[in-house]
Simulated assay, not measured.
Amino acid sequence: MYDSVLIPTDGSEMVDTTLEHGLRIACDHDATVHALYVVDSRVARAAEDARESVEESLRTEGEGAVEHVRTRAEEAGLEAVGEIRTGTPQKEIVEYAEEAGIDLIAIGTHGKSPREKLLSMGSVTERVVDNAPVPVLVVRD
């Protein structure tokens, strides 16, 4: 039923809670885990003069966040892949799910980074639920 599970990550502590649920489902179905971090282009644009350094910082943060998800999945005996994209998080998550043939998205609520909270960008999770082509497991904080 679930051959591939997408676990988007923003590097927050909420991801560990989401991983507990997403990895359990992936283990039950011997599914491949997909870790996705999106460098939010809106945050980088807002930085104006420091755009490149902010984008580089976010990409570095993303590498660590994706590696964390991949490591946890591999420790659970699962195949794991990771990707970092640049764009609007909810759009990139939905597009990745379509392109990669994802069967389930496991995503947390209240997983916003401090930058996102400061900018009041709204709920990525809510927008993913509204637009995802597959079932979405929402894990509450």
Rank of each mutant, 00 (worst) to 15 (best):
50 A>L: 15
109 T>C: 06
131 N>M: 10
94 V>L: 09
20 E>R: 08
12 S>D: 11
140 R>C: 01
8 P>R: 08
58 L>T: 05
68 H>C: 07
106 A>L: 04
26 A>E: 05
68 H>G: 01
35 A>N: 05
19 L>F: 11
103 D>A: 14
126 E>Q: 13
36 L>A: 05
54 V>N: 08
40 D>P: 06
14 M>N: 05
133 P>S: 15
120 S>I: 09
141 D>S: 13
32 T>V: 11
20 E>D: 14
100 A>K: 06
58 L>Q: 04
105 I>G: 03
52 E>W: 07
129 V>E: 04
83 E>V: 07
133 P>C: 10
76 A>T: 02
98 E>A: 15
59 R>Q: 04
30 D>I: 13
56 E>R: 11
122 G>N: 14
64 G>V: 14
36 L>N: 00
113 S>R: 15
27 C>V: 15
94 V>F: 04
39 V>T: 12
35 A>Q: 11
107 I>C: 01
18 T>F: 06
73 A>Q: 05
116 E>M: 14
6 L>P: 06
139 V>I: 13
16 D>Q: 11
39 V>L: 10
29 H>S: 07
117 K>M: 11
43 V>E: 13
63 E>N: 07
31 A>D: 06
122 G>M: 12
34 H>R: 14
125 T>F: 06
101 G>A: 13
105 I>T: 10
139 V>W: 03
58 L>S: 03
60 T>L: 10
67 E>M: 15
130 D>M: 13
111 G>E: 04
25 I>Y: 04
38 V>Q: 01
10 D>F: 03
23 L>M: 10
140 R>A: 01
85 R>Y: 00
111 G>L: 08
102 I>D: 00
124 V>Q: 12
69 V>E: 02
9 T>M: 06
118 L>H: 06
95 E>G: 04
139 V>Q: 03
3 D>H: 13
111 G>R: 09
56 E>A: 14
27 C>W: 02
71 T>D: 09
